[in-house]
Write a protein that binds this DNA or RNA. Structure first.
Ligand SMILES: Nc1ncnc2c1ncn2[C@H]1C[C@H](O)[C@@H](COP(=O)(O)OP(=O)(O)OP(=O)(O)O)O1
Ligand SMILES: Nc1ncnc2c1ncn2[C@H]1C[C@H](O)[C@@H](COP(=O)(O)OP(=O)(O)OP(=O)(O)O)O1
Ligand SMILES: [Mg+2]
Ligand SMILES: [Mg+2]
Ligand SMILES: [Mg+2]
Ligand SMILES: [Mg+2]
Lengths: 614, 614
DNA sequence: GAGCAAAGT
DNA sequence: TACTACTTTGCTC
DNA sequence: CTCCACAAC
DNA sequence: TACTGTTGTGGAG
């Protein structure tokens, strides 16, 4: 099925009438698309709607680069394979089989994992609060960007991460994208993050009863190890999960879907199988797992995004996990030396890690590693204007650092810029002395408020003084985005809102890393494009693994939400947060973003404040 | 038509089955109600829905007090009249007629005033941006409170200042309030103040071309003196206003209505006559004006709210302006010594002031006299919690003061509280040295950001230190609202978002004030309830008037918006604002709330920030 | 001047 | 669960 | 360590 | 007019 024929090494000519086949893979790919609208037609539609935009121009360049690399590797692979003798091929095959068997030995089918994921989460909350919307196409977001859409809108091809103005046209003209829906008007709802957080906290109360150590991956998604619960209660996983989902629905009025499997990755993928309000189980046998995996498009593997999917397709001619497994030898050759290699090998066998490496944070919470704030705006050249925005970002970051528990101080500060051409740059500064707050900051109880604000102003200023010269270097420039980021925290303990990065979450440690450079090592950073780690159970193979400490595998209480815009609103709340944080005795709920306890009636406002204005 | 029979001096028994007739006048009264729903049924419905709430309990107490006072005065009036001899009556009548004639002499019909008021403003903007809402009942606000509603919703009885949860039920059950609309679901939209401000600024660009000195009374309302324009262009008022309205519609996509009359009050009332997308003119003849006024319910007079309306009804048995004029003698007796007296006398003759007393602010802008921030929350007793909220309010006020141009400093600081019983208290502190910012604050240009933030923190702290003890005095308490206000500004020049208070706007100076106590002076503060000033043209009678300087009557450029919630969001924006304010050279638009220039793409966010989160 | 209530958006 | 936010004015004590 | 790109929600 | 915001990871230089 490999395509890779005419490879335009230069950026595809924009506006050259026919759309670039490259842009194609930027659009909606095999994965979640489905339902009502034709993937290709949607991609075409989106492309047509923004053919001549800066955004598209930039995307085309990225795509072309990826495509060229993929095709080059594909070519090299073909050449290398052509060169290989039968003996070499046989030996390789045997080696691969041995490796797969080795992996197989560590397959753990003894535990029962479950992934719960709310259905069309933001949209569901809004529709719950305004049921008359249920029958209409609804998008959460605005004309600029959509965060999610209800299933009606999805029938028109509307998706998360789709610009709203395009979605509008799709709903008005369903025929153009192969949808049989009648023309309609897309209803937009500005996100109300506070509400979603509130709902999320309610769901987590329930999850906790099935696994006190569950991990929340985002506001709408949780990972549970049900093994102990099932043993203790003597119920089937199916029944327990059904009950849990019923309780979520009863408590929040919102449906969720769940996947049950012998490890988190399988459970995660399974959670998507019966998506709206359903659950599905992959039985804990090797056969069931492999059968389940085999029919999956590789894109379904968490960590396999559109770029890797395209690489696999172009380089290996592979679409499904079954094909991937069959092509294990080529995978090795194509991705050798990269984590992607063992990731793919393990993933297509349905293997993943089950441990909860609670690196850092509180009692098992995941430690935050960076904190940032960025904003898109109408492209701007005026230095004074840009400086003003930079200062706003610094203040925001400062306030967020102050509101963290414990307050943060970091040794790396970075400025992110995006030009009106969509070109992104990051410039970072490493410091000897961290910038930020002392660990005792915020302990001032009733008083010390003034001190807190002065400190925040101080950190704002320090960040600004550090980054303003960095910005200065960019002039003249025409920017549409700036962002400020702090990392390398002095104190590891600050908990993050979400639990780990899901990929390494599935893979824990172990990597593929250089087994010696191989075929795929194309020019420059060819083959670069994908970072996916590997799967890795509690008992993992770990070929290389020059990793850190392993610590106790105790699972831990969740509490958190998800990476969300911390926008303007955040401020008000943030302050409330930092203040509230000082007297935990107060009633209220824990904000999953900043971990701070806020009074219930403030919860909405509070969490909203973590998000952007827009 | 006088009612006043059974006068329950004690608060009406709550939940005593039948609703109190007192609560009746708390509800929607004669004025704008109309359309689709039966006033009384709506009032009943609302009452039934919240019969036993703290809110209603509190309202009933207020109503009972007013009702008792009104009935007492009515009784005294009746007694006094019964005592009067025929001669006394005749002499009084002659005196009154002389007074009316005196007022009449100063009637000015030479100028052409116009009031433009956007139709269902907030709702119109939202519907413009989502036209599919046009046919549905839409409310701006939430379950707690509605700011406005579209005309569809109004057919169900939904109104501004109505709690959302009641509106929901009205739309679901239209029959209950005498509406013939089919049951439906009310669509709620969270206000997006930034957008409304943007639209308002666009309308004002147009208004300015018809009267460079026009006054903006709110985001959606402007007062123009068209005299010069009409003379210069030789067009009729009707044509000019029609053209202006067309331009507003073309520019903003939103309709407005307008009233044309010989003075502002008449124009204002007229603007409501053909409300959706219409205009009406009251010709500049005494006869036309009187005919227009005569048929008006007194409630239509701006400044005559539900309490005064009720007083007039109970005390005078008067409903319309015609009756009011005929009852001039009783008006005098009932309201003598109060500004209400001359207000009513002048108003029912269709007289009002035309001058623009630009007291204070910039070149003709209206000077702000106070600045405040208040928040409602779930009733709370915990001192620590309340202190935290107090500090937030102080910070908000501090930031607003900093963002004002020029930055503010005030000599009076006040704490407002509302108990869970809805009882409101205000406690103020007068200072020798004003608290706030030096007039040069914010001149720091590119640098001085840090200083600005430290100063803001300083003022926050000063406000808090002043008010925290005041709060302390209230403990123990159970509060549902707190507010912080600063007034008595050192510097008069800070411009306000709206132009004058519309009542005194109609009356300029002149007052009725004590001509010696008369009949109505009941017990305590009987007769208290109404503040309305009088009407008063450029050539006004002004019986007493121990007023201040008169200054030049030059009209002045408007620029501003309206009193809006400055809520949490405000913060982010506010800061942007204050910063931006320092370099006015930048492109962008002027924020009507804080007067600051912000880049266009930030306008929405900016203005939104002035408003509450909710 | 302090405090409350009414009024407007 | 759920009755606003902001500003000005009038009046009383 | 710096920077970019990719991935996820 | 209008293509996000936050965090983490992998890989290359
Ligand atoms: N690209 C994005 N940008 C911003 N927010 C996002 C994005 N994708 C998802 N979100 C937010 C909105 C979603 O409701 C929420 C959960 O994401 P996700 O579970 O992937 O989809 P979903 O819950 O909306 O629908 P589904 O029914 O497919 O799960 O996270
Ligand atoms: N009680 C209130 N509380 C908060 N905001 C209000 C209130 N009343 C009005 N507003 C806001 C929302 C309105 O759209 C805007 C203008 O008010 P107004 O002109 O009186 O009504 P409207 O423009 O919504 O309808 P219309 O003028 O067509 O009767 O001010
Ligand atoms: Mg989901
Ligand atoms: Mg999810
Ligand atoms: Mg209006
Ligand atoms: Mg108005």
């Amino acid at each position: 099925m490999a395509t890779g024929s005419s490879a335009p090494s230069a950026p595809a000519p924009p506006g050259s009438g026919e759309k670039s086949h490259l842009f194609n893979f930027t659009g909606i790919s095999a994965n979640k698309a489905g339902m009502g609208a034709d993937r290709k037609l949607v991609a075409d539609f989106v492309y047509e709607k923004s053919k001549n935009s800066q955004y598209t121009q930039h995307q085309l360049e990225l795509d072309a680069k990826q495509q060229a690399r993929a095709e080059l590797v594909a070519k090299e692979l073909r050449i290398a394979e052509a060169r290989m003798s039968e003996i070499e091929l046989l030996s390789e095959r045997r080696k691969i089989e041995a490796e797969l068997e080795a992996l197989e030995k560590h397959r753990d089918l003894s535990r029962t994992h479950c992934v719960v994921d709310m259905d069309m989460f933001y949209a569901a909350v809004e529709i719950r609060d305004q049921p008359s919307l249920a029958s209409k196409p609804v998008a959460i977001g605005g004309l600029g960007m959509i965060s999610t859409a209800n299933y009606v809108a999805r029938l028109y091809g509307v998706r998360a991460a789709m610009p709203g103005f395009i979605a509008v046209e799709m709903v008005r003209n369903p025929a153009a994208i192969g949808s049989k829906m009648p023309p309609d008007e897309l209803v937009f709802i500005t996100p109300n993050f506070a509400k979603y957080t509130q709902v999320a906290m309610e769901t987590r109360e329930i999850f906790r009863q099935y696994d006190p150590h569950f991990r929340a991956m985002s506001l709408d998604e949780a990972y549970l190890d049900l093994t102990d619960y099932l043993a203790a209660h003597g119920v089937s996983a199916e029944a327990a999960v059904q009950e849990m989902r019923d309780r979520v629905k009863a408590r929040t009025g919102i449906t969720c879907s769940a996947g049950i499997g012998p490890n988190r990755m399988v459970a995660k993928i399974a959670s998507d199988e019966r998506k709206p309000d359903g659950q599905s189980q992959v039985l804990p046998t090797r056969e069931a797992v492999l059968e389940f995996m085999d029919r999956l498009p590789v894109r379904k593997l968490p960590g396999c995004g559109k770029v890797l999917e395209n690489q696999i397709s172009i380089m290996l001619g592979v679409q499904t996990c079954a094909e991937l497994r069959a092509a294990a030898a080529r995978v090795k050759r194509a991705f050798q030396g990269r984590k992607t290699c063992s990731f793919l090998m393990r993933a297509c066998l349905g293997l993943s890690s089950d441990e909860l490496a609670e690196e850092g944070g509180e009692v098992g919470n995941v430690a935050r590693k960076s904190l940032s704030c960025e904003r898109t705006f109408r492209a701007e050249s005026e230095p004074a204007e840009l400086r003003g925005r930079l200062r706003d970002l610094c203040r925001q970051v400062s306030e967020d650092m102050a509101a963290s528990v414990p307050p943060l101080a970091g040794r790396v500060v970075a400025l992110k810029t995006k030009a009106s051409s969509f070109e992104v740059r990051n410039k970072q500064i490493s410091l000897i002395q961290p910038v930020g707050f002392s660990p005792n900051f915020g302990k001032g109880g009733e008083d010390g408020r003034e001190h807190a604000e002065q400190e925040t102003a101080r950190v704002t200023q320090e960040l600004y003084k550090l980054l303003e010269p960095v910005l200065e270097e960019q002039f003249p420039c025409h920017l549409r985005l700036m962002g400020v980021r702090v990392s390398s925290f002095r104190d590891q303990r600050a908990t993050l809102d979400k639990g780990q990065q899901l990929i390494s979450f599935f893979q824990s440690k172990g990597s593929e890393q250089q087994e010696g450079p191989s075929a795929g090592a194309g020019p420059d950073n060819l083959n670069t494009g994908m970072p996916k780690p590997q799967i890795q159970e509690a008992n993992v193979i770990d070929l290389d693994s020059s990793q850190e400490d392993q610590r106790d595998k105790s699972r831990d209480p969740p509490v958190q939400s998800q990476s969300l815009p911390k926008g303007c609103l955040k401020r008000v709340v943030e302050r409330l947060a930092s203040r509230r944080a000082k007297r935990i005795r107060l009633s209220g709920v824990c904000c999953p973003v900043c971990g701070v306890r806020v009074p219930e009636d403030q919860a909405n406002r509070h969490v909203n404040a973590h998000y952007g204005d827009q």
